[in-house]
Every structure is written in structure tokens, then in C-alpha cells.
Computed example of a mutant assay.
Amino acid sequence: MLAASSMTAQVAVVKEAEKEFKNASTYAAYQKAIKAITPAFSNPETEKEANTYWIPGKAGFKLYDDLFAKKTIGQDVSLVDMGNALLDGYNYGLKALDCDTVVDAKGKVKTKLSKDIVSQITGHANDFLNAGAAFWESREFGKAYEAFTDYLAIPANPRFGKNAPAALPDSTASSIEYNRALAAWQAEMLPQAAESFDQLLTVGYDEPAAYDYAYSVAYQMNDEERKLRYSQIAFDKFGTSNPAFLQRLVNSYIERKEYNKATDMLNNAIASDPNNGTYYLSLGVLKEQQNDTIAAKNAYKKAVELDSENAYNNLYYGRMLVQEYDALDQAAANMPQNEYNKYNYETMRPILLEAVKYLEKAYQLDSEQTDALRYLKNIYYVLNDGENLLRVENLLGQ
């Protein structure tokens, strides 16, 4: 009797919630009905019943349609509420479909609600693209990612059979995949963003910016394998048309201590484009990693000669000059004071003054180059230049 009473209570909960769903004309009212039916999702008597989930699923699609109708006649409607109703309809619909598909002892598939569920989902397939756009405009990037994911998944779902919409053209699917990846990135869902970029770059998307964004995601994740793979794919596709792709690939090889590969790539790139400062900057980094400071300094000098308006070229060459000064200073540590003073004034001090030009230029070109300011602070201290020392300390906020 107690069991029958419990079952009756749960059925009553579902029935009462069903009435609330039928009267829900706003998403807030729909959410209230969801709260009412939620206990049935975990009760043994109702959690496996397809109708338990299809009631909120069907109501979600109906609410979307009602709000859409109001929008078409000019009423003020929240596009985010519309999108949420659509996503809820889809998610509960899939749960209902799982429960509705039952195979009996003879292997025969029995369904009661599946035809209606599939019809509602596939009939709204194109609406998920509009929902994704609405979520994006409202900066609800996580929901935009979900909507774009559903839009891509519906045509490929074998459970929808002949009712499934036609497969998207490759160009359309790639474009949506790109938006899906960006939405996940904006939502700080980095693993999901990386998975989307994996899909996108594998098919060879033609927009170079996609490869920049993919690399940024891998960089944020500190995923060296993806950084290398994305750089290789980008370089294979675009070659040296964008020097950044080769630079990243070389950096990955340097990180992995595959110096021969990095050297070969840079030598080939320089041979084909000897006036590209980016390649010499990368060559300088490579030579530094190999502890060849003279070659590194020469490479940075060449980089800044070819492109004097690049902040990194100026920073790296200025830094190498500071290191040259430090090495000379250490070597002269045991000199008599009068010899040291003369050597410092004639040989070492000019190197620091030369470094100042490039480090100041680096900061002038890019105010984010605080490394340049830190080097300048030490230089002005050594040069006993109080005015510039105070200026740099103020720029550093000290």
C-alpha cells in the first residue's frame, strides 16, 4: 500500500507539472514547472519513463514556437529566453528518446513517443543556428557553443533516420565549427575550444585567423603537442605567407630541443626571403638556446636592421647588448680600479648607451614591453642617470 501510494504521488507530481507546462507562456514560468517536475527525474517509479522527460521537452519546443510567433508580429521577446527554451526542449527530448526506445525479449524495438520527439527536434534543426547567434550577441558564449554544437549534431544523428535534415555543406559546417570554437574560447571552455579547433583544422579551414586563435587556445592550455600540431598544419597550408606560422613551428622545435629541424626550417626560410626580420629573430632565439651568444647577437642585429619598427627585434638586440656588457664586467672584475675605470668608460659604457637606444625604442613601440623598462632601470642605475632612473621607475609603478 505504501509503495502504491508513493507511485501515485510521483505520478501526481508529473501530472501537476504537466499542467504548469501547458500554462507556461514565459521562460520564467517554464523554469518554475521544471522545478516542480524535477523530483520525478530521480524517483525510481518515474525516472525511466519517457513521458517524464518529454513533457518538459515538448513544452520547451512549444514555448519557443510561441515566443517566435510573438516576435514575428512585432512583440518584444527575449531571444535568449527563446534560445534557452529551444535548448531545454532538445536536451529533455534526447533523454525522453533514450527512455522511449525499448528492445523486448524478441529483439523488437518498441516506441511510443519517438516519432513525435524526432519530429520536434528535426523540425527545429535550423533554429539552433539562430539561437547560437542570439546567445553570441548577448555574450552568453557557453550557450552559443551549446546551440552551435546541437546544430552540427542533428543532421549526423542516426537515431533521427530519414527525418534527419540533410547534411550541411562542408563550407557551412566548417563556418559553424569555427563559431563553435570561438564561442567555447570566449566562454573559457578551453578543452571544448581545442576539440572544436581540432575538428576545424583537420578539414583545412581557409581563414588564417582560425589558426591564430587555435594556437592561442593551445598556448593558454600550455599544450605543447597542440601548439606544435596547429603550427605544423598552418605552415603546411599557408607556407611562409604568414611568418608567424613558421616562427611558432620553430619555437615548438626549440622547446622540444629539436634544433636541427629548427635550423633547417630557418635556413630555408631565410634563403627564400632574406629580408624578413622575423626569421632572424627566431634564429637568434635558436642560437641562444644553443648557447651561441655571438651568433644570437648577430641574428638579432640583423632582425632590427631589417625591421627597426618591431618591438621584439629592438628588445632582444638591446638585451643581448646588456648581456655583452655583463660578461665584460665580470671578466674585468680583477682589474685594478684605475684600469677598470678606463676600460669601462672606453669599452663597456658605450655598449650600455647603445643598448639604451634599442630598449627605449622597444618600449616606445609597445608599452607592454615592461622587460625593456626593467633592463633600462638597471642601466640608468649603473650610468648614474637619476633623472631617467626616476622616469623608468614611475613607468614601472615603483
Rank of each mutant, 00 (worst) to 15 (best):
D223M: 08
T370E: 14
G277I: 10
G89H: 02
M221W: 03
P350S: 08
L373T: 01
G93P: 04
L113A: 03
K143M: 11
K162G: 03
I351W: 09
I294A: 15
A327I: 12
L152W: 06
A181P: 05
A59G: 05
Y253D: 02
Y219W: 08
L246I: 03
Y53H: 01
Y92M: 12
L383A: 05
I176Y: 08
F148D: 07
I351N: 01
Q337Y: 11
R349S: 05
M265F: 14
N23P: 02
E47Q: 15
S282D: 07
F68D: 09
N310H: 04
S196G: 15
K342C: 00
N222D: 14
Q192K: 12
D366S: 12
Y340G: 00
L283M: 13
P208I: 00
P274T: 04
Y345R: 11
L94K: 06
D212Y: 13
D66N: 09
L396W: 11
V217S: 04
F148G: 06
E354Q: 13
L390H: 05
M189E: 09
V109G: 04
A33R: 03
C99Q: 15
A187T: 07
A193T: 00
Y381F: 13
K48F: 13
K297G: 07
M348N: 03
A12R: 06
K227Y: 03
Q330P: 00
N251F: 11
Q330T: 11
I176N: 04
A50M: 05
I117P: 01
N313M: 00
L228I: 07
P158H: 01
L152I: 09
A144M: 03
A193E: 03
A331M: 13
S174E: 13
R248Q: 11
L113T: 00
Q364Y: 15
F128N: 05
F68C: 00
D198R: 14
N23T: 13
R374P: 01
L94D: 00
G386V: 04
G83K: 05
K143Y: 10
L315D: 04
M320Y: 01
Q120V: 03
G318H: 01
Y27N: 08
K143A: 13
D329K: 14
L352E: 04
A269F: 06
W185A: 11
E258Y: 06
N84F: 07
N314T: 00
A311Q: 12
I73K: 15
A24W: 11
E177T: 15
K377Y: 05
E195C: 00
V356W: 06
E258P: 05
T293Q: 13
K361P: 01
Y215L: 09
A183C: 07
L396M: 08
I351V: 12
A295Q: 11
A85H: 09
K110D: 07
T172I: 11
A362W: 12
K22Y: 08
E49C: 00
L86R: 07
M1G: 14
K302C: 01
G93Y: 05
V80A: 08
Y358L: 02
P350N: 09
A36I: 03
L86K: 07
A187N: 09
F141P: 01
S241M: 13
S42K: 15
S272T: 14
A40Y: 10
M221G: 06
E255R: 14
A12E: 09
M7W: 15
